[in-house]
Computed example of a mutant assay.
Amino acid sequence: MKTVIIIPARYASSRYPGKPLVGLRGPDGVTKPLIRRSWEAAMEVRGVAEVHVATDDDRIAAAARSFGASVIMTGTDCENGTVRCADAMARTGIAADLVVNLQGDAPLTPPWFVEALIGAMAADPGAEIATPVIRCDAETLAHFLADRRAGRVGGTTAVFGRDGRALYFSKEVIPYTGGAVPDPIPVFHHVGLYAYRPAALAAYAGWPAGPLEALEGLEQLRFLENGRPVLCVPVEGRGRVFWELNNPVDVERIETALAQMKETP
């Protein structure tokens, strides 16, 4: 399959304006903007034909071009990353069998997360959309619960059936465990990463947002609300910490994780 990665990035984040240009310091002391670190994560994925940054903001575009990224300028009315990916594909006419949305706030995404999605879609021709989930460890679950107590919107959780199809995604910590921490922990962190068949991606852009998507602020719920199953693909962290940059407090968390990884300037 010809696979392309699109990294949607917007400047006007309600929770963290200008987020793609926020600097993240690596273990070598070098600070790079979030969008560059996300692009570098995408460039590590094997079996991908093209990687593009999709944005409507000239500041993000200029930053991306400065480190050699291909940039697709999209419309200003893209309400989420999935719509921005669809808009980028429609504007360019890129031919692909699979489109991967690696969101611009997820620089800690390991390449094997993306490769697992590609493999799952290749193995299941009937799957239209796939997304990774990772079982929470005690540290990640503690971050989730601390964010909720502080009134911050943190990571997203997912519940899915025995066939791997998603039942629901939420910014609350689900399933409810009554305050206990069972072993193994039954809470799965949803990784903000998607693989779509082009037809499913194009269809999404034509649907209005549904009530659940509006309440949760989670774009993937639009697929569920329109009867399109989403395949959840369990992945392993392999000792790597995964966390998105959702709030200013996450900068320190991500820099701490980067300090535990080897990287080149």
Rank of each mutant, 00 (worst) to 15 (best):
A146P: 00
D147R: 03
D147I: 00
D147K: 00
R148P: 07
R148I: 15
R149T: 14
A150S: 10
A150P: 01
G151W: 04
R152H: 14
R152F: 13
R152G: 06
V153Y: 07
V153T: 14
V153H: 05
G154Y: 07
G154N: 10
T156C: 13
T157C: 13
A158W: 03
V159F: 05
F160V: 11
G161Y: 03
R162C: 06
R162H: 08
R162L: 13
R162F: 04
D163H: 02
A166V: 15
A166Y: 05
Y168R: 12
F169C: 02
S170M: 03
K171R: 15
V173R: 08
I174H: 01
P175A: 10
P175S: 12
P175V: 08
G178R: 05
G179W: 01
A180N: 13
P182V: 10
P184Q: 05
P184D: 07
I185E: 00
P186G: 05
P186M: 02
P186N: 05
V187D: 01
V187C: 00
F188P: 01
H189I: 01
H190P: 04
L193N: 01
Y194F: 14
Y194M: 08
Y194S: 06
A195E: 06
A195T: 11
A205F: 02
A205R: 05
G206V: 02
W207Y: 03
G210H: 13
G210Y: 12
P211V: 09
P211S: 15
A214R: 13
L215G: 13
E216R: 13
E216Q: 15
L218W: 07
L218F: 10
L218R: 08
Q220I: 15
L221A: 09
L221G: 09
L221V: 07
F223I: 03
G227A: 06
R228H: 13
V230G: 00
V230L: 07
C232G: 02
P234T: 09
P234C: 09
G237S: 03
G237F: 02
G239K: 00
